[in-house]
Design a protein around this nucleic acid. Structure first.
Ligand SMILES: [Mn+2]
Ligand SMILES: [Mn+2]
Ligand SMILES: [Mn+2]
Ligand SMILES: [Mn+2]
Lengths: 226, 226
DNA sequence: ACATATTTTTAGACAAGTCTAAAAATATTT
DNA sequence: AAATATTTTTAGACTTGTCTAAAAATATGT
């Protein structure tokens, strides 16, 4: 096994972070934002960004921010693909809870081997989504975008299937699991309190539960039309 | 997930290399030997060995060589355990050929997570041997030693089950596979040429084949007594 | 438009790990 | 036992990635 060209863990992490920031806002990506994602200092980001620019992975103009090149974006998406496939493996095959997979996948995503990731993909049956409902990019780099909406956007009387989360923190995921709010559950919105915004939902046509606005703003559902 | 204490890839590789050298000869381990295994220079080994000594992972005396401490040995064995479990996963679950697993496992063995390796072990059904017949250390660090012998040690009329290899090179493994000399096959020694040492064997009571002395000296068998 | 606050970059240092070339220690010959 | 050869260590430099503190650029308020 040899590597066409290999990027370091650090480089991949920077590219992934910039890619995610680029996705979630069309504004220029500034060094402080990157620093906060990577958990490092802005000065370090400036250094690194210069090197990535040298390597044609992104375009960098002093004081203006950065933008990934096609190549940089490809590496980033590839890293996301690996991350989500590994998360799926950990959850589906090794029975890790959905709040336990992320940190281990952060390490596994940097293993370099195309054959490995292709075979893993096949072994998992070419899954389309990871344990958190996030789409898994294909080996061509195409990401099929979800059309999920926030649970908080559902009107009274409308229903949806839990399909993803906005907040990925372990504490939130654990909380959802404890309350049986896992992927695939059907939720029917029955009542929204005018006073404290608590949302009363019916889970899978059986159990009734009250959800805080914090919770409903962080659950993504596939709206059921009918 | 947090790590009790984490050793770097490099440190783990040094410990593993020293451990393997320690196993295969009772002599003191000198820096050149380590350098040749790690694929580096003796000067670099000296530097590293000093640091590992600081960290109580090995005992080092200038010009005398090194010896692992209990802690160092534990880390090394743990790394071997991870390596062999991952090799088993790659071979059994992802259908990699036995000559393709080593290089990827060299990367995977450095993923830090006890839960991960325990769950992987369970997922694989607590295998006792890796795809090359090498024993997989238990989570307690105990390695159940093989009592395999070289195929070259079998006398005419004796039989054995292929159970391991001495040479782990991809070219040798590929050659064995091509000739159907894989783990589990039964070999009966029928003839040893006095002239060129070629060994005529009967594979699984069916196929006759001539093996070079290079081959018979690199196959390990479990002798069948009867 | 000018002063102030914020963000970003530079300068210089540090840690891990590696290298080459030279010096020191050990081993082998004669 | 001295001379030579080999092995091992040191010295000093380099790379990657990080940091702090100071300087420079940009943004904001009046
Ligand atoms: Mn994740
Ligand atoms: Mn995920
Ligand atoms: Mn191996
Ligand atoms: Mn092996």
């Amino acid at each position: 096994m040899y590597f066409c060209f290999m990027y370091s863990f650090t480089e991949e992490n920077y590219l992934k972070a910039i890619y995610k920031l680029q996705e979630q806002s069309n504004l220029a990506i500034n060094t402080n934002a990157i620093a906060s994602v990577i958990q490092t200092k802005a000065a370090s980001v400036t250094d690194m960004v210069k090197k990535l620019s040298e390597k044609k992975l992104l375009k960098y103009e002093k004081y203006k921010g950065v933008e990934l090149t096609q190549l940089g974006k490809k590496i980033a998406i590839d890293t996301v693909r690996k991350h989500r496939l590994w998360e799926t493996f950990l959850h589906k095959k090794l029975n890790f809870a959905w709040d336990e997979v992320h940190d281990i996948a952060e390490q596994l995503e940097h293993i370099h081997s195309h054959e490995l990731i292709d075979k893993l993909d096949e072994f998992l049956g070419f899954p389309s989504h990871d344990p958190h409902g996030d789409p898994i990019p294909g080996r061509n780099g195409v990401i099929q975008q979800n059309n999920f909406i926030l649970l908080s956007e559902l009107m009274i009387g409308e229903a949806g299937i839990i399909s993803g989360v906005v907040n990925h923190s372990a504490i939130f995921l654990k909380h959802l699991e404890k309350n049986d709010l896992v992927l695939g559950k059907k939720l029917l919105v029955q009542e929204i309190s005018a006073f404290d915004q608590l949302v009363k939902v019916l889970i899978d046509d059986k159990l009734q539960q009250q959800l805080s606005s914090e919770v409903v703003r962080n659950i993504l559902v596939k709206k059921l039309t009918e």
